[in-house]
Design a binder for these strands. Structure first.
Length: 482
RNA sequence: GGCCACGUGGCGGAGUGGUUACGCAGCGGUCUGCAAAACCGUUUACCCCGGUUCAAUUCCGGGCGUGGCCUCCA
């Protein structure tokens, strides 16, 4: 099946053929190579950060399916040197290394909860200073970069194709620029490859004979890490659309100039931006929602990671997405209805061709939803299960329970509980369980006496605790809202 | 100000030059004290204005709106 991907550089949906296949390398040497910009580890990742992680995890899974698990190399970097990290560490009064390690662990936990496979490599920027310096020296030697006031700057006019990704004519960019240009730049568009550090800031010996120790600029790390792991030219470079300019444009300038390649990556794949309840999600608006909050307690509800993953995939990755409570609830409902009647799936069972076909069409996950709904409708639960597993969903209904944070008397109870058709309130705190049992008995009595107003009142009260009642022929079951 | 995306029924969301995807919600029915759940059935769409065409939601131009980038940002 032929994978097609939309390439931002050419603005076209094209057939994807990995370079090694096109070159006809021996089978054992072939690799599909993908690089995705990862997190800057200074604070919990928010739901916007989760989008590329989930989207490219799906692409990773698809590539493994198409080319073989051992043929795909997926690199997602960790940016652990950055001014925001320095600021945050100072604010918290902790060592930079401690902050970055802790934040990375939190990120790894969150991402795992979202059903994402670990990438093949997760290189940290601070462990790649040496290749960054090697690239910088090379760029200077070749006349693509220069030293000025202890900075090393990339000279943009030395790269004739600059702007090819974002399609920005240089003169127009300058006309609209709102930033003050540092006086030592030869050209206003020139960007920093290396900068001197002040005392107390992270620093390494500087390249190019610069006396003051310094640290890398933002863009060079990705060029260096991609080079080390994937070579001078590779197949796919991914990330959020906001990175298109300047970050990816500058990566291209650095890598292509250093290695004299016609492309840095053969496909540039960008996911669209995410909004929250119709608003831009930003610290300035005060509506940033972290993955952690969504998993633990978002307006009283902790959502299963699989629900969050599913919700993300209901929108095509290229489209702008609006993240809403209503949307998450709908996702959760759909997933529950599917998980309820999955039959056991054998490990070897493959998803039906339509599933792979939908993904091969530029990761058309909404189309994929249609296929999944069809499998459900036609009661093909084996195929449904195999498809879900393929997409990173467990199919295990016990992983789909929500966590409620209740106000019950003093303090709050966070309760996480399973729910079956049987009584299943055992994970509520004891005093709540007693309360619930008493309410149920009271309601049973009221119903016997045909006092239905009272019975309905009690039902509403239980509903507030996320307990649902189902009146059967001669019994009433209690279950936790799922 | 410059550049770039996007604009589909109550909501979410694909797709297509001609045959009203799909899901959620809603409505009707079976069932129920009433509900819930389940099952069956079912309504509603392509931002505005021009143009091309036998025919446009789909192509082209303009407008309006939303968002992104130009400064850290997925």
């Amino acid at each position: 099946m032929q994978l097609k991907l939309y390439d931002t550089l050419t603005r076209q949906k094209r057939d994807f053929v990995p370079l090694d296949w096109e070159l006809g390398l021996p089978k054992a040497e072939r690799r599909v190579r993908m690089y995705v910009c990862g997190p800057t580890v200074y604070d919990f990742a928010h739901i916007g950060n989760a989008r590329p992680v989930i989207v490219f995890d799906v692409l990773f899974r698809l590539l493994r399916h198409l080319y073989g698990n051992d043929r795909v190399v997926y690199v997602r970097n960790i940016t652990d040197v950055d001014d925001r990290i320095n600021a945050r560490a100072a604010e918290l009064g902790v060592a930079i290394r401690e902050l970055t390690e802790r934040t990375y662990r939190d990120f790894a936990e969150d991402v795992q909860a979202l059903g994402c496979l670990p990438p093949s490599f997760e290189p940290r920027a601070t462990e790649y200073i040496e290749p960054m310096q090697a690239m910088i020296e090379r760029l200077i030697d070749q006349g693509n970069a220069y030293v000025a006031e202890e900075h090393v700057l990339f000279h943009v006019p030395s790269m004739p194709d600059y702007g090819e990704l974002s399609k920005r004519p240089l003169d127009e960019m300058l006309a609209g620029a709102r930033v003050e240009v540092a006086p030592y730049k030869r050209n206003p568009m020139d960007f920093v490859l290396w900068k001197p550090s002040k005392p107390g800031e992270p620093a390494w010996p500087s390249p190019a004979g610069i006396a003051t120790p310094g640290r890398p600029g933002w863009h060079i790390e990705c060029s260096a890490m991609a080079w080390r792991h994937l070579g001078e030219m590779f197949d796919i470079h991914g990330g959020g659309i906001d990175l298109e300019f300047p970050h990816h444009e500058n990566e291209i300038a650095q890598s292509r100039s250093a290695f004299h390649t016609p492309r840095m990556a053969r496909f540039w794949v960008h996911n669209g931006f995410l909004q929250l309840e119709g608003e831009k999600m930003a610290k300035s608006v005060g509506n940033v929602v972290t993955i952690r909050e969504l998993l633990k307690n978002w307006n009283g509800v902790g959502w299963p990671g699989e629900t969050l993953r599913f919700n993300m995939l209901r929108t095509h990755y290229h489209q702008p997405m609006d993240w809403t409570v209503a949307g998450v609830e709908e996702s959760h409902k759909i997933l529950l209805s599917w998980y309820e009647d999955l039959s056991p799936v054998s490990v070897d069972e493959m998803p039906p061709p339509e599933i792979v076909e939908a993904l091969c069409d530029d990761l058309n996950t909404p189309e994929l939803m249609t296929v999944l709904h069809k499998l459900k409708r036609e009661k093909q639960s084996g195929s449904l299960g195999a498809s879900l597993r393929f997409l990173g969903f467990s199919g295990d209904i016990s992983k789909l329970y929500r966590t409620y944070t209740l106000e019950a008397g003093v303090g709050q109870y966070a309760v996480s509980l399973p729910s079956t058709v049987q009584f299943s309130v055992q994970r509520y705190p004891n005093e709540l369980q007693e309360q619930i049992a008493a309410l149920k008995e009271a309601r049973d009595r009221a119903r016997k006496e045909k006092n239905f107003a009272e019975a309905d009142r009690i039902r509403d009260e239980l509903k507030k605790m996320h307990i649902l009642l189902k009146d059967l022929k001669d019994d009433t079951t209690l279950e936790v809202e799922r």
